[in-house]
Structure formats: structure tokens, C-alpha cells
Nucleic acid binder design. Structure first.
Lengths: 362, 362
DNA sequence: CGATGTCATGACACCGATGTCATGACATCG
DNA sequence: CGATGTCATGACATCGGTGTCATGACATCG
């Protein structure tokens, strides 16, 4: 691969002049510039980042650590693929900054993280983002002070800047919407409580009930470890069966995430219950490959992983440029409810009223 | 960030000695080594890749270009997330080589590819892999001769080394298995024929029929653009409806991929047809988040994207090390059929026989 | 005991780009 | 017309490692 010396030689100028053409800084004569550009073209010259970075002491690289790429093979496929969307959002946010994003994958092994961090440091990254697969607490090794770090979809006890989903509020928004549609007996099938989502979402569910003055019925809130290898579906079946036999059965099953909702569809079907006429189903995540393809399409709330990534990217850029509000509190991100055919409006008259009102107000 | 000079100064030795400790090449006295290691630890020294790479003229970086990360937001979610698994396989294959994999994302815009290639070249990558989202022909800009390139999940007309799925054989394997289970009227709902998968898979379907001496009925092979925004589901419904009204309706619906199969589940359900008793459904991809979670679980054939990635990684390493068979033919990758509850065995007696035979042979 | 070999270490150049400073050719101004 | 300023360009040092060669201290051998 050719160097500026090759280019300089061919154009009959000094390397420094080539550098000037490359960077457009110092003044360069018109003819000289053309000669240099021609030489670069002819040689297929591409600037070496290594050399440039050595002088500049800036790598222009942002390091991204994630399990997004290698974790999907796990037996329990759990959530959708949140971390992937987060990575996407980060890329989008950093695109305009001219930074190169370097992605390293944990390959599902958290013990590799320190090694990955070292690799990144050896590339002198200007900042690091750690993306967790699901909302959780993490504990990363300490970084050198001059390398800023942002946590996405996770947080730690050291107050490292982080961006996380507002699970509680999202779930409350969805349940509010169900209540507004006339549903009164709303069941909640929660994820395991050792996950942040399994704690915060039920809280949001209860928030919405309380707001509406509806009683909280413990029989309608169950944690189901639905993605356990063998017995998961059975656990889910039993739970639903029990709920449907209650004196006052629920009119909607709110699921911990969209994948659980997909499984619930199958179970209700083989129980002979029709969705949504006999019983509604709602999800969480707006994992579109599922929510839009299921039949009927799934009502769910969008956890905007893209936005989480974007916010994390922005936050990191702020840290790097130093223009920081040194605000250490986590950034909470929420998203919209997607109302689809898996839940019926128990008060169609209201909808008519609303529509009528809007028509009238035109 | 500290340098070997800092370390050398602190340990009271020359930079060269520090370098020797780092690389373990030249002889170093026991006490000296300890002193240097202590100094490195105290300073939190991390070697600069830029400087090292400059001398060594080797970056130790492999460039990966993919849309895996940013394409998921498309309205039509089409396939699963193949490219992601491919990236995973590549990482696994390259892990042991000590190479750092740098991933760049097209952000869904193919016009960005040349820019990404330039960025990679400026980092002096030792090789490049281009990963396509689905099996297709591509046309990348020419690379400098000294930078090897491997295409994964795609191919070009220049004979660039490539690794692609053996769609034809995979589909044939699945259909063979259906035939072996006693199915005779097998419908095939194909993807659009402008995709490689929409051409090769139907061929495999016909191969298997021909082998078994079964007639090919054009009424049972239809291309359905099922993931079209609005009308997709309707198209699929109409097609299935037409097939089920045939004088001799199919006993299994073979779908172009798992996501189409998921949609077919919903449609059959609302038609009041039970899976698998009244009609079987088979997919393609073994997209586990769907295949294993659907109820009943989906019979499908595994397109081992991981393996495609792994093979691509290996092929690139061969090209880099030069120990090449300069074999320009594409590498075809196949995978196993996963037999699940979405298709019944029409000849249970055979299964009993097999089992009995195995029991007896013990 | 002198010649030769091995070991531990350092001096120095070099990789490719770029910041600093210098230089020569002109243009402008008092 | 000489002083000063601007423009286009080049010489040289430098970034942080590492390859090459040199050097001094010992050990070994004939």
C-alpha cells in the first residue's frame, strides 16, 4: 500500500505538501494540488490511520461492547434482540460525528469483557459504550480516567452515566390504555423478578390500576419463567388455566414481553379460546417480527431500543467533548403504545364518541 | 495514557527492554522482567496498537461489512436475522486467530459501502468480509489486490471467494423428510422469485418430488409476496384458501421461511383448521425464536448461518496466510431438518416399527 | 590463559503522517 | 528602493513501538 512519500515522489513535491492537500490546511498552489491529487488517484492511495493517529493522539474510534451478536444461540431465546437495536441507535447517533464505531462481542462470555476493554484501550478508543442484553445492573472493571464510558440498557452502583428503559412508566402507559378501553380485570404475567423488567413492569401495572382506582388482585399477578427449556410452556399453561377459572376471570392477559405473548397465543388457541373476542393479549417490546406477524397482530408497548442507543451515543459524545453537564443520574427512555387487534375495545361507543367529537371539531 | 518510555523510565531500563518484556522475545533477566512488569502495572500501561502496527505493517484487524445491525427497522421484517448469525459465526471462527474484528454497518444504505471500505483500508485491515442479509448477487467496488475479500451469503460475477447456503439441497432434504412421513400432496408457498431463495428452494422441492416419483402439480407451487405491507396477509390467505379447496388438497404447507409459517399458523387458525391434525406446516431457516415458540413448534430445516460465517472466516484466514487452494468456486453450506409437532407422521405404524427395531437390536 | 560464545541490555533508525519552523519568490507599502 | 507581509513549499522532529546492530559482563573450552 502506498504512502505519502510515494505520492510526493510521483507528484514531484514534498510529503508535507501531500499532507496539506489531504487535510486542506496550509495554502497549496492550484497546479500542485492537481498534480498531487492525480498521483493519489493513480496510486490508489489511502491514508494510514495508524500513522495519523500516532501524531494526532486521537483515534477517532468509539468502542462498543455488546453480546448482541453472539448471544442469540442460547437455548432460551428470551427477549427479542434489544441490544441489536441499541447498537443500531448508537451507530446512527455517532454517524455524523465522523467517529468510527468498533464493535466487540462478548460471545456470551462476560469474563471476556476485560480482554475486550484492553483491546479497545490498545486502539486508544476515545470512548466506550457497554450495551447489555436486557435491563440489568452490571459491574465493569475500572477504566482509566481519560476514557469516558456510557452504559446502555444497564446501570452500575458507581454512578457511571447510563441510559435505561423506563419499564415502569411504559407498562403503566399500556395498562392505562387497556383500562381506557373498558378492561377492568387485567392479568399480568410477569418475567422473573430477578430481572429489572420483572420488577419494574409489575410496578407500572400496579401504578395504572391504582390511578384508575381499580383494586389490585394478587391472583392476577404471576411471575412465570416461561422460557425455561422444558417446563416453560407448561408453567404458562397452568397459570393461564388457573386464571381463566377464577370466579371473575381476566379480560386481558398482559404479558411480560412479546415472545411470551406469542406463546400465550398458541396456548389460548389449543384451549379453544379465541383472541381477542374471548380474551385479549398484550405484549411488551413491540418486537415487530412477532407483534406485526402474529394473527391477530399484537397490542404492545414500544420499548424504543433505538432511542436508548441514540441517547447513549449522544451522552458519550458530550462526555468526550467535555461539554458536560456532569449529571450522573440515569437517562430514562419511554415509547408509545401500539394498539392492535389482539385486544378489543370493551366500550366501542366511546370510540365512536371520540371520533364523532373529532369530526365535529374540524 | 503512558508509553513504554514511561514504563522504561520507572523501571530504570531502556524502552527496548520493555518491548522485550511485552513481546517475550529477546532474553530478559528475571529481576529486570519483574521490575518492568511492576512498572507496567503501576502505570496501567496499555500498548498502543497504532505505533505497533506502524512498524509491523500488520493491523491485526479484519473488516466486516454488514447490514445486520441497521436493517431490522424495515417495514417488511422479511427473513429472520440471518446476517447476524453469520457475523456471529465469523467472530467465532476468527476468535482464535487473534485478529480484531471491526464491524461496519451499512445502515441499510448500500451507497455507503465504498466509504466503509475506505475507512477499513485506512485502518489497513488484513482482510474483508461482506455479509449480505439474504442470499443474493452483489457487486462490490474493486479492492486493492493485496486485501483479500470473502463474500458471505452472497456471490458476484467476478468469482470472488464466497460462502452461500445450499438452498436447493436444504429444501429437498425437508421435502424428502415429509415424503418419508407419508405426505403425498405437499404445497409449496415460495418467496418471491427475484430472491435466490425464491428460485433455489422451489427447485429443491421439485427435486425431492421427482426423486420420489411424485407428480409435480403447478397448483401447489405459488410465489407469495407475504411480507408486503398491507396486502401480504390477504395474498397468503387467498392462496391457502384456493389450495384447500382443490379436489385433492395438500396435507402440508411448506413455507418459504419460518416467518411466513408463523403467519400461516394464524391464518389457518382463523380458518378453523387445526395444525397439525388437519393440515401440517413446515418452515425454512429454523429461526428459533419463532420455530420453538410457536404452538405447536414448527418443523423446519436449519439454514446454519453460523456455519456460513465460520466458513467465510476460515476462508479469509486461508487467503491471508496464502496457504490457498485458489479454488474460486462458492462454498455451499447445508444443515439438518428439525422435525417438530407442526407436521404429523401419516404412517405412525412405521415409527412404531422403527422404535421396535431399535429396542430389539439392543 | 586467551579465544569464543552466550546473555542481558542499550543506542539508533524506522514505520507514515503531521506540527513547527524556515526559506525563497513576489507583492505591497511608506 | 528597502522593509515588511503573504504565499507556496520544504526540512526536520515527533508520535510509540520494534528490528538491527553493538556492547560489556561472564562462562566455557582448547
Amino acid at each position: 500500500m502506498s504512502t505519502i512519500y510515494d505520492v510526493a515522489h510521483r507528484a514531484g513535491v514534498s510529503p508535507k505538501t501531500v499532507s496539506r492537500v489531504l487535510n486542506g490546511d496550509g495554502p497549496v498552489g492550484e497546479k500542485t494540488r492537481e498534480a498531487v491529487e492525480a498521483a493519489m488517484r493513480e496510486l490508489g492511495y489511502v491514508r494510514s490511520n495508524a500513522a495519523r493517529m500516532m501524531r494526532a493522539q486521537k483515534s477517532g474510534i468509539i468502542g462498543l461492547i455488546t453480546g448482541a451478536i453472539s448471544t442469540r444461540n442460547q437455548p432460551s431465546t428470551q427477549q427479542g434482540l434489544p441490544d441489536l437495536y441499541i447498537v443500531q441507535g448508537i451507530q446512527r447517533a455517532l454517524e455524523s460525528s465522523g467517529m468510527t464505531v468498533m464493535i466487540a462481542d462478548t460471545a456470551g462470555r462476560n469474563d471476556r469483557v476485560p480482554h475486550l476493554i484492553d483491546t479497545f484501550l490498545s486502539h486508544r478508543v476515545e470512548g466506550l459504550i457497554y450495551v447489555a442484553e436486557y435491563h440489568q445492573e452490571v459491574n465493569l472493571p475500572q477504566l482509566p480516567d481519560d476514557t469516558p464510558l456510557v452504559l446502555a440498557n444497564c446501570y452500575d452502583s458507581r454512578g457511571t452515566p447510563s441510559v435505561v428503559p423506563d419499564d415502569r412508566r411504559l407498562q403503566a402507559d399500556l395498562v392505562r390504555r387497556l383500562i381506557a378501553s373498558g378492561h377492568r380485570r387485567i392479568a399480568y404475567l410477569s418475567l422473573r423478578p430477578d430481572m429489572a423488567a420483572g420488577r419494574l413492569r409489575p410496578q407500572g401495572y400496579r401504578d395504572a390500576l391504582a390511578e384508575a382506582g381499580l383494586p389490585f388482585d394478587p391472583a392476577l399477578l404471576v411471575h412465570v419463567d416461561f422460557d425455561q427449556p422444558e417446563i416453560g410452556p407448561q408453567l404458562l399453561w397452568d397459570t393461564i388455566d388457573r386464571m381463566l377459572r377464577l370466579p371473575e376471570p381476566p379480560s386481558v392477559l398482559c404479558c411480560g414481553n412479546d415472545q411470551m405473548a406469542m406463546m400465550v397465543y398458541g396456548i389460548l388457541r389449543s384451549m379453544g379460546r379465541r383472541v381477542p373476542d374471548e380474551i385479549g393479549v398484550a405484549g411488551f417490546d413491540n418486537y415487530r417480527a412477532i407483534a406485526e406477524t402474529l394473527f391477530p397482530p399484537l397490542t404492545t408497548v414500544e420499548l424504543p431500543y433505538n432511542a436508548i442507543g441514540a441517547r447513549a451515543g449522544e451522552r458519550l459524545m458530550h462526555l468526550i467533548s467535555g461539554e458536560g453537564r456532569d449529571d450522573h443520574s440515569p437517562v430514562l427512555v419511554a415509547g408509545p403504545v401500539h394498539w392492535r387487534a389482539s385486544v378489543i375495545e370493551l366500550r366501542p361507543e366511546n370510540v365512536v364518541t371520540f371520533r364523532t367529537l373529532r369530526e365535529e371539531s374540524k
